[in-house]
Amino acid sequence: MQRHLISAADLTRDDAVLILDTAEEMARVADRPIKKLPTLRGRTVVNLFFEDSTRTRISFEAAEKRLSADVINFTAKGSSVSKGESLKDTAQTLEAMGVDAVVIRHGASGAPYRLATSGWIDAAVVNAGDGTHQHPTQALLDAFTVRRRLVGRDTGLGKDLDGRRITLVGDILHSRVARSNVDLLHTLGAEVTLVAPPTLLPVGVETWPCEVSYDLDSTLPKSDAVMLLRVQRERMNAAFFPTEREYSRRYGLDGDRMAKMPDHAVVMHPGPMVRGMEITAEVADSDRCTAVEQVTNGVSIRMAVLYLLLGGNEPAVSHARTTEEK
């Protein structure tokens, strides 16, 4: 049976906890002198990146190599894609070379879903970020980071995030990270609050399983973790907010604001950070900021996902929506 990871919304609580627990096992590999497992030896994974993303691609590549998979990197720039080749043809070409899994990053929302459900290829599909839709491994590594920090590395095993209060701040409208996190954190029992100027919240957000606020200051004291999202400077030209400075004053996290958070609360950022915009250097470099840990955890999570999709005996990641429509 073919299995994919397309959306965080497709994961059940048990799927997600299993991935987090598996990632903890994978993390121990990183502490060994030889950071390699033979699990995916002889399996080929292609990193199919239609959008620039050095961090995510390197993270997947590290995960694949630690699992001993053969890795092919495909980036759209300078490739046949720029000559007009379609996603379908590209995917079929790669599969013809004997690929077991496709890790895809694409600028079009739904492209990984199409790849997984259109009958174009048989390989497992892992969504590494599609348009403004989903970025499930990012949400998983964020949940992993929150669980480690707030519940504990060993005490967290088998546990979800029941009752933890997590606040996401920034450009929700254009953020696949936000969508994935709302889905996954909700599944894991967390209470999610989105904070953004109204212009950066999608019409329809009221149906999401979370709270929405326009006021950061009143939300901070009630947050166990505050996740900041990058705000792209070019949004300013489209009148989403008046100026960078005004955004920063109203929604940026600085030292004074961080002081309003409970002592145990952490600050998270998926990167790349725009220092001086959504986060000040003081906050970014503080002990409470988990940005660097998140990068480390990303490798463990991606190892866990690939292991469970390609190597694990039990199906860890179900994808009900895909199978129903076949």
Binding site: S109, G110, D130, G131, T132, H133, Q134, R176, R179, P202, V203, G204, V205, T207, W208
Partner: peptide, 18 residues
């Protein structure tokens, strides 16, 4: 714009046509 702007577009991350 890629689809009707509303609950579904918010979820799918497709540009809204209000």
């Amino acid at each position: 714009a890629q689809m009707n702007e509303g609950v579904v577009s918010a979820e799918l991350g497709l540009g809204g046509w209000p």
